[in-house]
């Protein structure tokens, strides 16, 4: 199936999970799905049936509040069962509100405190390199996350230690919890910042699969420095009433009407939507 269609299905599943959980962060989930899906479908080397073997490419969702996106992608590629998805944020269920390796070992890190997943990924990249294991580490950060000082400690480390097996992706949807980045604490000139920390920088449209693919291809050819892909994305991608509005960052509850409107735009039929609501 065409990856665009699958991405829409993952978006539908993510919103369905947030609806049933009665809380979550839909805006950033929707902006990040295309890239996470591409990584798991096309880019990373791993065995979905034997996921924890040491020689695997790794992905860490440092913006841990967008866990539903990762869970829905994992279900799509067969790492977890789709039937588990509606357990998100529920007591005694493994799908924690923010990713947690203690509950779901395949998520690599425990995240939810911004900046830490990035450092954890750097540790994995350094560890693999020290052991001459030829696998890559991918890590996704939010744009607001870049305001954490720890990110720049890590950026300096990875540049200094020439971690070419590390590829960071910034889900640059321009919005954070309360407002636009530029009104909270501006990030620009963002590309220059990473260049100054000795990273190879690629800027792309984070919803264009050709550009996503070319960026990851390029990143694998870069030697002696880590790569950062600044992916320009749309918060709430695919749902017109969410797009461009920081109000849909979350954590928030989706009403039946919110979900219905959103899923119709993502291509679900009314009959399908009624089924999802009653799951």
């Amino acid at each position: 199936m065409d990856i665009k269609k699958i991405a829409r299905m993952v978006s539908i599943n993510s919103l369905k999970m947030i609806f049933h959980a009665e809380s979550g962060h839909p805006g950033g989930v929707l902006s990040s799905i295309d890239i996470i899906l591409f990584l798991f479908m096309k880019e990373m080397k791993y065995d979905s049936k034997d996921f924890l073997i040491k020689e695997r490419d790794r992905f860490i969702l440092s913006k841990g509040h967008c866990a539903p996106a990762l869970y829905a992608v994992a279900a799509e590629v067969g790492i977890i069962e789709k039937s588990r998805l509606n357990g998100l944020r529920k007591l005694d269920h493994e799908l924690q509100g923010h990713t947690h390796r203690g509950a779901t070992p395949w998520v690599e890190a425990s995240t939810g405190s911004l900046g830490q997943g990035f450092s954890f990924a750097i540790g994995e990249a350094k560890g693999l390199k020290m052991q001459n294991i030829d696998n890559r580490v991918y890590v996704m950060l939010g744009d607001g996350e870049l305001q954490e000082g720890e990110v720049w400690e890590g950026a300096m480390f990875a540049g200094h230690h020439h971690l070419e097996n590390l590829c960071a992706v910034i889900d640059y949807n321009k919005m954070q919890s309360d407002d636009l980045n530029e009104n909270i604490m501006g990030l620009e000139p963002l590309s220059d910042k990473w260049k100054a920390f000795n990273w190879h920088v690629i800027e792309i449209d984070g919803h264009n699969f050709d550009e996503i693919g070319k960026a990851f291809d390029k990143a694998t050819t870069i030697r002696n420095k880590p790569t950062v892909i600044i992916a320009h994305t749309i918060k709430g991608k695919g749902v017109s009433y969410m797009e461009g509005s920081p109000a849909w960052h979350g954590s928030l509850k989706l009403s039946t009407e919110d979900l219905t409107l959103a899923l119709l735009e993502l291509g679900a039929t009314e009959e399908e939507i009624n089924g999802y609501i009653n799951e």
């Binding site: 390796r101 690599e108 890190a109 450092s119 954890f120 990924a121 540790g123 560890g127 890590g154």
Partner: peptide, 17 residues
């Protein structure tokens, strides 16, 4: 840069070190 050092240690451990 102790914050990065601490969280990075978790990642190193995740590779078996």
């Amino acid at each position: 840069a102790e914050q990065n050092m601490m969280a990075m240690a978790g990642g190193l451990a995740a590779t078996g070190l």
